[in-house]
Structures are given as C-alpha cells and as structure tokens.
Design a protein around this nucleic acid. Structure first.
Lengths: 349, 349
DNA sequence: ATGAAAGCGCTAACAC
DNA sequence: GTGTTAGCGCTTTCAT
C-alpha cells in the first residue's frame, strides 16, 4: 500500500506544470525503456527490481510528475481509497462538526469522503449504504437509524468495514460515542442536588423503537430514570416524547406546582422549551429549571446559559476515521473506549 | 447517457437478492448467447440492435439485477458521475445547510458528492480542486477563497465545469448568490428609517483583499456605504474589521453618544456583538441597535430577536447543482439570476 | 531482475 | 443487427 507517490502526497504541481493529464505508467515504461511491470515494481516499492533501474524510473516519474490514476487503480485493485459517510442530515449542529472532523481526518489518512444523507428514512439508509458499496468505498462510517438483529444481520452480509457512530446497532460493530446513560445519570445527580421535586423529560418519540434506532435516546432516558432513583425520587417523571412537545408542555402548570426541572435529551429541545417558557413569562431557573444535552456551540448566545452535557464531537469523527482506516488497512480494529463528557454548569437550572 | 439501469434508478435489491457482487456484462452476454457489444447496446439503448434480442437481454439483466460497475464505467468513459464540492468548512451554520441541499439535489440528479474542505487556506483550496480533478469528478461547486485574474486563469486552465457559490471569482463563472450589495443597502435604508445617527460596521478583515476572496464581504460593505449616502448620512461609519472586533467594540462608548447602530456583515458577528453589549449592561435596541445578515436558524433562540437579511441557502445548493449538471451533461449553462432575499424585522434595532 | 500478457468491467470503433 | 477488437491505466501472475 505504499506508492512512491502515495495518496498522502501533497504535491499537486502536476497540473500547474504539465497540464491536467498526467503521464501514465506506459509512457514512463517507454521513456525508461523498460516494461510496465518494472515501472510498477519501482513505483510501488515491490521487490524484484534492481536499485539502479528503480532509481531511474523513480527519477523519471518524479520529473514528469507522475500520479497514479485513482480510477484505474480502483478498478485494478478493487479498492477506491474512499470512505462512505452516512448521516441523516447536516442540520443538527453537531453533525456538521462531525462531518467536518471526518473530512479532515480522512484526508490526512489519504482517503476521500463520499457523503450520503438518509433524511431519517430507514429504507433510504440501506439504499445509501448499498450505493456506497456499489461505488466500492473501502469502509463506511455509519450513524445508523435502522436497528435490531435483522439490520445487524444485513450489515454483516455486506461484508465491508463499518464503524457506527452516535447510535449503536449491536456489540458486533465498533461504536464511537460517549456513555450516554452514565452522562445523563450524572446530569440528574447534578439536577437533584439543586432540590427539584418534579421532573419532566422531553425527548424524541420513544415509541419509534422497533422502527428506528434510538439507542442513544434510550440510553439517555435510562440514565435519567436511574439518576432519579439513585437520588431517592420515587415519582416517575412526566415523559413528553411527542414531536409536539412544546404544545404538550403548554398544558402544564409550573407556578403552583412543586419546583420542576425540564430535562431535555438534547439542546435543541431545551432551546425550544426555554423559548416556550419565556413566552409564558416564566423565569428560568427561578420558576422552572431546564437542562439540555450536547452543548451545541450556539448556546453561548442564549440566555440564561443552558446547563448541559458536553463532549467533543470532533473526536468522534477522528476516532471513527482512525478505526475505519485501521479496519481497511490492517483488517483489525481495536476496542474504542467511550469518549469523555462533562457537565457544563449554566444558569438554567 | 441513459442506461437501462441508470444512476437515477432506486432499485438496490441487487444486494439483498444476489449478494454483493453483481453480474457483469460479460456474464449476461454468455447467458444470452450474444457478444458484450450487443449487451452494451441493449443496456445503453444504443441503436443497432433488434427489439427481440434487446428485450431478452434486458430481461436477463433485470432478472439478475445487473448494475453497471461505476468504477469500470468511469475508467472507460472518463467520467465518474460525481460532483466535487469545495467549501472552507462546515462550521458556519449556512454551509451545512448548503451542503445538505447540495447532497440532496445531486443524488436526485444521479450524482455523488465528494466533499473537500479547505480550512480557509488558499493554497489548500487549489490542492482540493486538483485532488478532485485527479479523481475525475465531472464538475466542481466552488466556494472560492482565492481571487483575482490569476486565480481566474488558473480555473480556466483546469478545463472543467465549475460553478461558484457565495463568492464570485469573475463574470466568466456562473455565480449563485444574492445581490449582497443591494441587500445590505436595503438593510441600511431600514436602519436609517429608525433614526440612527452613528454607525459602526463590523466585518471580517477587508484588508484580506488581494490575498483572499472577500467578494461578498466587499459587496455588503459597499451596500452599507451606499445606503448611508442615499439616506443623507455624510459621516463615514466606524469600520471594525479586525478579528478582535469585540475588543475593539469594548473601547467605544454608547451611552453618551449619538444613537448608534452596529451593522454586522453576518449574524455570527451580530450575536457576538450582542453578547458583548449585553455584558456591558447596554439595552438593545434602546441604547444601541444591532443588525445582522444571513438569518441563521439559531436566531430564534436569541433575545432580542435579531433584525437581519434572509435568503434561502438551500436554494443556493439546488441552483448550483442544477447548473453544474447542466454544464456537465449539455455543455451549456444558463444565466443564473441572483436569488431573492428579504429583511427580517426583529427587535434588535 | 525483467518482460509479456492477462485481467479489472465497461465502452466504442470497426468489420461483417 | 451483431460480433470482434482494442482500449481506459493499473495490477498481478507467470515465464524467462
């Protein structure tokens, strides 16, 4: 896998110098009076060639700015030096940062990135994956929205390196993420120390389970329940998991009720919730507390500062790329530890 | 360009049905007892084939779920059905939406997307472009950060369809965007109607001109000046175009000064400015007005509601894709009208 | 150590 | 109409 002009190579003067079309192996062979095979041996540092001819070939190649044709190489090798990335969209603030990190890390590793968006459609996710495989990407970084043993089986059948990110399919696949359950539990510990008595949990529809992969959401929810239990709260939280969560919230009284904490499974929800509460003239955190999750970067412009859980989503991208490249190149894959997180104490709860 | 199983085709049951490796033209030829050439004629609806054999071949192909190998096809055709996208990063809120739209539109048009991020490094931009060309993308959607006749010449030399977006290189290239100058002028008209007397303009370093493409920023600035002139303001605005604009702003007095409007060339700046002003205990808009540009989606969580200029960045993506596909497939390219925008009246000014 | 040749899967020019 | 053949540019096997 080492070419004299390898994919990591950053010399692109080829175009500036000799026009767009580069020189081919065949031409080098002619120039050097050797066969294509020999040129290949030199270029790819394969054994069975004398130092002398190798040097000569390398010199000519370098001088004429030879760069292997990726398409031809892909056809011959059956590999493309590309990584497929399947996300559901780029709207979520974290995803764009994630994608940014993936692109950067991939390029550093000599890979290109094919991005495909599923739009949260489970069938579309499969199509995207198959598209990528058909295009012969060498590996796939997948934020799965399908779930279950059936999907797990489906992925195995594909027989291609995969790393899952932000959502787990099964332990069979490497997973990049944080310990969402523990993180949410820690967050609840934090909230409970503040003396809240009533809890509302806002999250995406948990009933999607079975149809859509909501692993991370389940983990967070479980962490919430666990946290409450650990803190001696016996009453179950009010769970609002409808897309119309704002409307649902509007039916709830906060003034003449026990001090309430609205626990949101992600910051976007928390922001919407805060907007709603503010509209109602409720003071945060005096009348009602709010906590989010993700620490998206726009929080710094919002008052009051939202208390939330932070983790480095860029690291997700880096780890995912590192792992997928490992799988591709060495066939192996080390266990990926769950990444760190921490509570960001704002003033919203 | 029309294959019986074309790129627009959404049937991917190939994998589910017959395993990952599909059937090849050669195999179809054998199955049908014809030559590869004939199969090709059938598959690609080329003339010179009888209806009967064509039907038969198509039947077999469909039955065996034939799908042309993109890599092989790319090598033979010299085209890849991919579009390269060069942006500087995905951090700016608008860019991720832009990228989202580009991905969606491309797929609809049967193209894949290769994303490359330049990180605002002009040299890197060239490398990215050359990388993409070397990978034989069929066209490039470019948010240029280089500028000037030299770069223009460079792009011409590449001899590949290009559409510029958000930043203009020269009239030689199709450009997708709004009339930033007029938009900012309109915004100034709006501001001036509110009776402001002193103006501060906050934007990225205008001195980058010459090194970096700041076309859009220049347009906005020009629009600002024009707007002030048109409204009878003779005094020049205070221009703050240092990356340390917040610090620069901190040295300016607002209470005992004529009523001031801080005009920001983009929303992110405006948000930072508002944060700063709030920290100083200044009331917006009573003590000082602020206006932004872009209408990024997070504004709705920020109080007071920022007055800004809105445009549909998704449309940018769609238009860019439509144009680049046009250039690729028909060689032609229609003039792209500047896209619409409008002032969003918030309560920050 | 080097060359020759086949092959990756599809396309396209030319012959019958 | 259909078959044949020669690529596209690189890799790889098998002789020499």
């Amino acid at each position: 896998m080492s070419t004299f002009v390898c994919a990591h190579d950053n010399d692109f003067s080829a175009i500036a110098a000799g026009g767009i079309m580069g020189i081919t192996i065949k031409e080098i062979a002619e120039l050097c009076g050797v066969s294509q095979g020999t040129v290949d041996r030199a270029l790819n540092h394969r054994p069975g060639i004398s130092e002398k001819t190798k040097k000569k070939i390398l010199a000519v190649a370098s001088e004429r700015n030879y760069r292997p044709d990726p398409v031809a190489r892909s056809l011959a090798r059956g590999r493309t030096m590309t990584i497929g990335v399947v996300l559901f969209d780029l709207y979520n603030r974290s995803f764009s940062q994630l994608m940014n990190a993936i692109e950067m890390s991939s390029r550093e590793a000599g890979y290109y990135v094919h991005l495909m968006l599923t739009n949260k459609d489970p069938d579309n996710e499969k199509k995207c994956i198959e598209h990528l495989i058909h295009r012969k990407v060498d590996g796939i970084i997948l934020f799965p929205i399908n779930e279950g043993p059936e999907f797990d089986q489906y992925l195995r059948m594909l027989n291609i390196p995969i790393v899952t990110i932000c959502n787990k399919v099964s332990d069979h696949w490497r997973y990049v993420g944080i310990d969402d359950r523990q993180a949410m539990k820690d967050a609840m510990d934090y909230v409970c120390r503040k003396g809240y008595e009533r809890f509302i949990y806002v999250c995406p529809p948990l009933a999607y389970k079975g149809r859509t992969n909501i692993f991370t959401q389940e983990e967070r929810f479980a962490g919430c329940l666990q946290g409450l239990r650990d803190n001696g709260i016996t009453e179950q939280p009010i769970v609002i998991d409808t897309p119309a969560y704002v409307e649902a919230l509007s039916g709830i009284d906060f003034r003449s009720a026990p001090k309430t904490a609205v626990v949101c499974s992600c910051d976007i929800y928390a922001l919407e919730v805060m907007n709603h509460l503010k509209e109602r003239g409720l003071r945060i955190p005096e009348d009602v507390g709010v906590i989010g999750f993700d620490n998206i970067d726009v929080l710094k412009y919002v008052a009051p500062r939202l208390t939330t859980v932070e983790y480095a989503v860029e690291q997700f991208g880096e780890r995912a790329v590192r792992d997928i490249v490992g799988q591709i190149e060495t066939g192996g894959s080390e266990h990926i530890p769950l990444l760190p997180y921490r509570i960001i104490a704002g003033s919203s709860i």
